[in-house]
Each structure stands twice: as structure tokens, then as C-alpha cells.
Design a binder for these strands. Structure first.
Length: 258
DNA sequence: ATGCCGTGGAAACCACGA
């Protein structure tokens, strides 16, 4: 079972890149973020033709998340993170697939700090943490997957000192991530590669990709039932070098069947 | 230290991203 996450930065603008990568990597499940398309402009036929069924939650211009599967039915559980009826951003979708609960998320960016966007990010993180606790209490295989917009440690940033006042690296956000993980989640990439510099995002400008000036912000958090099955993980870094590509690269994990 | 690049949407600029 290969599960991937990919912030596509506009699913229609990146459709050729997405399809090329799906065909090459052949993930069984995929969590997508930043669709940047309203529900009716989701490229359903192209995704189906690539062999995937899909549940998605779009929004005009911004955000948008989707879960793709080529291995089993996607049983949607929710498309809103609980805790704020006023929140209109499409940043969360959750489903049962292959006897797992998959929570696909796009956490708010939060810049600039300080300000209302940063406060929204902190609140969203608290809501996620509360919901994550309930998911763990169900004692079933569950994964929280997506663009968390946080570099958990200094190992996850090319130049940590330049990012200390950025909303992706502010200590409040790193603490929020730490608190979430300490509920009992496993950061899959760090579990397998505790000391390596691994990035999942490179800015479009200043030749960030060529300089490998990257960030690790796309994560897999696994419950204990899935941690046991974790056998491999990686970043499809070369996809970031393709024409018309996203600023994120796809990230993936492999779980053994039993 | 910075939006230098790139998207979508509206309108030939703006909001937003990380």
C-alpha cells in the first residue's frame, strides 16, 4: 500500500504534471491540497481515466483538498474540521479507505506574523489537535496526511535563522505540532530518517530548487496501528524539476499489508 | 530581508502563497 500527499498548487494548471506523476509513481491512495478550483471545475474525468476514484472538497480560487484511491471505495466521513461553524475554507476531508481513516489536510499558512492570519492558523491547529485526539481514541488505523505548513525542527529548514519569525516556523507553531505528535502520532519520514535533511517544498524564486533551499512541511502522522506497518517513505523530488510544476514535491509512504 | 515566481479571477491589477 503506497500512500502519497501532493500539494499541487492548482489542479487544473498542474493537471499534466499530476497525471504524469500518477502514471509514474502509481500510488494507491493520494491526498491532494491546494486544488484552487470550485467543486464543479474539478477534472473528474481525467482523474477517473487515470484509474482513480475521488472525493474532493473544492473552493473558488483557494485551498481545496481531495482523496484519490485506486484500491477501494472512498467512504467520506466529513469535509469540515469540527470546531468552527464560521470557517468556510476547504482545508480538510476525511474518509475510510481500505479499513483506514485518512484525514487529508491543508493547514493555514498563517503569514504574516503577527496578525489575524496567524491567529487563524493557531486556532485551526487547536481544532485539528482536538479532532486528532478523538480519532486516536477510536483505536483504529488512522493517518493525518497533508500540507501542515510547519517545519517541525531546525533539521527541516535550509536556513533556520531566517525563518524564526515566519508563521511556518514560529515557536508557537512548532510547539503546536509537537503537542499534536505527542498525543501518540508518528511522523513517518522522521521515523525512518531521523537525521537526514529531507525537503518537500522549494520556492519558485531565487533558484531555490537548484540550491536545494527547501522546507519539509508535508507530513504523514500515523497512529500506532499504521506505524507498525511502515516500511518505506520518500520524496519524489525530481517532480519539482519538471516544467509547469508545483512548488511542492509529492511525498509518499509504503505500508506492508499485514 | 525580500513575493524576485506562479496561480486563479477579475479585469489589464489584485489576493494569496511559504
Amino acid at each position: 500500500m503506497k500512500i502519497a500527499t501532493y500539494n499541487v498548487n492548482g489542479i487544473n494548471g498542474r493537471l499534466a504534471v499530476l497525471l504524469r506523476w500518477l502514471n509514474e509513481a502509481k500510488p494507491d491512495l493520494v491526498c491532494l491540497q491546494e486544488l484552487k478550483a470550485p467543486n464543479e471545475k474539478f477534472p473528474l474525468k481525467a482523474i477517473n481515466d487515470a484509474g482513480y476514484s475521488v472525493k474532493w472538497h473544492g473552493q473558488k480560487s483557494w485551498n481545496g483538498v481531495a482523496i484519490l484511491s485506486r484500491v477501494g471505495e472512498i467512504q467520506e466521513l466529513r469535509r469540515v474540521l469540527p470546531g468552527d461553524p464560521e470557517d468556510s475554507h476547504s482545508r480538510y476531508i476525511e474518509a475510510i479507505v481500505n479499513n483506514m481513516i485518512i484525514g487529508c489536510l491543508y493547514l493555514p499558512n498563517g503569514n504574516p506574523w503577527p496578525g489575524p492570519k496567524f491567529e487563524y492558523k493557531l486556532k485551526w491547529f487547536k481544532r485539528l489537535t482536538a479532532h486528532a485526539k478523538k480519532l486516536l481514541a477510536e483505536k483504529v488505523p488512522v493517518a493525518l496526511i497533508g500540507d501542515f505548513n510547519v517545519m517541525p525542527t531546525e533539521l527541516d529548514v535550509y536556513k533556520p535563522e531566517r525563518w524564526v519569525n515566519d508563521a511556518l516556523f514560529r515557536i508557537e507553531i512548532r510547539d503546536a505540532f509537537k503537542k499534536l505528535v505527542e498525543q501518540g502520532w508518528t511522523d513517518a519520514i522522521r521515523k525512518l530518517y531521523p537525521k537526514e535533511r529531507i525537503y518537500t517544498f522549494w520556492d519558485y524564486f531565487r533558484n531555490a530548487y537548484q540550491r536545494d533551499a527547501g522546507l519539509r512541511i508535508d507530513h504523514f502522522l500515523l497512529s500506532s496501528q499504521l506505524k507498525r506497518k511502515l516500511v518505506n517513505a520518500g520524496v519524489d523530488k525530481h517532480v519539482r524539476g519538471w516544467e509547469k510544476t508545483s512548488d511542492h514535491a509529492p511525498v509518499w509512504i509504503e505500508l506492508k499489508d499485514k
